[in-house]
Amino acid sequence: MKLLTHNLLSSKCLKGVKVGYPLRIVAKDVKISESEYNMEFVLKMIPKLDWKVLVNAAEQIGHGNNLPIELIEDYEDDEELLKKIHHVLMEVEVINGELICPETQRIFPISAGIPNLLLNEDEVS
């Protein structure tokens, strides 16, 4: 699971959960891979992201990459920053670990890089 995906997922499908975001990450294995930088993609992605959640997630698993706490305004022209963002979004991957619901502590396992968000029959709201 890439940190980009983490930024998009919630546990609000759980019974009784209101927001379910962001999910806490427990990373057992983290893999750093290479993915070709594509400025257009990063620029399209940034407005879709929750910036703080991204920065925190990266720090949680030890790959903070010196991202600024607040996203600077003219990020479009800062190629170095865009590349850093790209790295955190697409190149840092949790292979084995857990996603944890912030409200109920329900654990969603990540194995072989694939998060499992299936619920038990009795958890569906």
């Binding site: 997922l9 546990s11 499908c13 929750d50 694939i114 998060p115 968000l117 299936l118 569906v124």
Partner: peptide, 16 residues
């Protein structure tokens, strides 16, 4: 990006 094991009938994507 990723594949996720999930039931598309349920809302698991963040609102935005």
């Amino acid at each position: 990006i990723d594949v996720i094991v999930a039931d598309s009938a349920l809302p698991f994507w963040h609102n935005d």
